[in-house]
C-alpha cells in the first residue's frame, strides 16, 4: 500500500516558513515508502513557486484565491479540510508557528481527528503509523503520542529538524479548487484593523557556534562575559532558563523547552548544570563542550567534552587571550 504525507506549507510575505522546509526534509529522509506532498494557500502562486525547487516534494497542491491572501483561521481551516477529505493523506503535518497552533486544532476539530502539538520528533512505526514525540510538563518529560484516527496529525516545533536541499526537482504541481461559499461569512466575522510586524530579529539560533551561560556565572555582570566572548569569536550568545529568570539575559536567547531549540556545530555551555529541559533543547548540536565546577552536574555526563573548571575564570582567560 502506498502512503502519503501531506505538509501544510506556511508562507509569510511570500516566503516559505523555515519550519515548513524542515518538516519536508525530515519526512523525505525518514518516512520511507511515503509520497511527500505539500499544500500551500496563497493569492498568487507564481511569486513563490521558485522556492519549492529542491525542497523535496513529490507533489504540491496549490489553493489559490485572492480572498485567501491574508491568513483567516476559519477560512484556511475550511479549504484545507476539504483537500484532506479528498486526497486522504495518512499523515498530515504543519509547523507549530503562531498561525499553525491556531489552525491545526481547528482542522482537527472539524475532521474529528486527533492532533499532537509541538512535536520535537516524528517517526513512523512498521505500519506507517505516526509516533509523535513532544515535551510535556514544561519539558520535564517527553511523551510519544499515537492517534487512532487518519490522517495522523501533528504540529512540529521550529528547529526540531534540519532543513536540507534535495537534488531531485520533479515536483508535480496540482491546482486544487475547494468549494468556497462560506468564505465571505468567515471574512466578515473578523477584521484586522492594524498590524505591526515586529522588527525581524537576526536568527541567532542558526549560528554555527553558540556560547551559553547559566547560574554558574554567579552574577549578571559575569554573564556579560558571555556577550564579550561570543562577540570576539563571531558566535551568538544564549542563556539557560535559570539565567533568564534571574534577569541576567533576555528570554529571546533562552535555550531549552520553554525557549529555543538549537543545532549548532559547536555549543559551549558555561556554568550550565543541564536541567532536562535545557538538554532537550541542545540535542541536535553537533558537539557540546561543558565547563562546570561540579563534575556531577548532568551536563557533564551528556556533553562531548566535559571540563571541570570555573566558567568565569575560563571566560576571563579566553577573553584575555583573544583580545591580545
Amino acid at each position: 500500500m502506498k502512503f502519503n504525507t501531506l505538509v501544510y506549507i506556511e508562507t509569510n510575505n511570500n516566503t516559505i516558513e523555515k519550519v515548513s522546509k524542515e518538516i519536508i526534509a525530515h519526512a523525505r529522509q525518514c518516512f520511507k515508502d511515503n509520497e511527500i506532498c505539500g499544500v500551500v494557500v496563497t493569492d498568487e502562486i507564481t511569486t513563490i513557486l521558485e522556492q519549492f525547487k529542491n525542497a523535496g516534494l513529490d507533489k504540491l497542491f496549490v489553493i489559490q484565491n485572492p480572498l485567501l491572501k491574508k491568513f483567516n483561521v476559519s477560512a484556511y481551516c475550511d479549504v484545507l479540510s476539504q483537500l484532506i477529505n479528498d486526497i486522504k493523506p495518512s499523515v498530515f503535518l504543519m509547523g507549530a508557528t503562531a498561525n499553525g497552533r491556531e489552525l491545526a486544532p481547528r482542522i482537527a476539530s472539524k475532521l474529528e481527528i486527533g492532533l499532537t502539538a509541538d512535536c520535537t520528533d516524528l517517526q513512523l512505526d512498521e505500519n506507517s503509523n505516526l509516533l509523535a514525540t513532544r515535551p510535556t510538563y514544561g519539558g520535564k518529560m517527553m511523551a510519544t503520542i499515537i492517534s487512532k484516527t487518519t490522517p495522523n496529525f501533528a504540529t512540529v516545533r521550529q528547529g526540531a529538524f534540519k532543513h536540507k536541499q534535495f537534488d531531485v526537482n520533479n515536483t508535480e504541481v496540482c491546482f486544487y479548487t475547494p468549494e468556497m461559499s462560506c468564505l465571505n461569512l468567515f471574512l466578515s466575522q473578523l477584521e484586522v484593523l492594524k498590524t505591526e510586524i515586529k522588527e525581524p530579529k537576526e536568527d541567532w539560533t542558526e549560528s554555527e557556534i553558540i556560547v551559553a551561560g547559566g547560574l554558574g556565572l554567579k552574577s549578571k555582570e559575569n554573564f556579560g562575559l558571555i556577550y564579550k566572548f561570543s562577540d570576539l569569536i563571531g558566535a551568538k550568545p544564549a542563556a539557560s532558563r535559570a539565567a533568564v529568570e534571574l534577569g541576567w539575559a533576555s528570554h529571546d536567547i533562552q535555550v531549552g523547552q520553554t525557549g529555543k531549540s538549537v543545532a549548532p556545530k559547536l555549543y559551549i555551555a558555561l556554568g550550565i548544570s543541564g536541567a532536562l529541559q535545557h538538554i532537550s533543547g541542545i540535542n541536535n548540536a553537533q558537539k557540546i563542550v561543558a565547563i562546570n565546577t561540579d563534575n556531577n552536574a548532568p551536563i557533564m555526563n551528556i556533553a562531548d567534552f566535559a571540563i571541570q573548571s570555573d566558567a568565569v575564570d575560563v571566560l576571563n582567560n579566553l577573553i584575555n587571550k583573544l583580545s591580545n
Binding site: 474529528e112 481527528i113 486527533g114 492532533l115 499532537t116 509516533l131 515535551p135 510535556t136 519539558g139 520535564k140 518529560m141 517527553m142 511523551a143 510519544t144 503520542i145 499515537i146 492517534s147 487512532k148 484516527t149 532536562l276 529541559q277 538538554i279 532537550s280 541542545i282 540535542n283 557540546i288 563534575n295 557533564m300 555526563n301 551528556i302 556533553a303 562531548d304 567534552f305 566535559a306 571540563i307 571541570q308
Partner: peptide, 20 residues
C-alpha cells in the same frame, strides 16, 4: 483519538570525554 504510547524523561547519550 490520541493516546500516550510512552512517557519518558528526555535523555541524550553522547560518548562523553572528560578532559583535564
Amino acid at each position: 483519538p490520541t493516546q500516550v504510547k510512552k512517557a519518558f524523561r528526555p535523555e541524550i547519550t553522547r560518548a562523553t570525554e572528560r578532559l583535564s
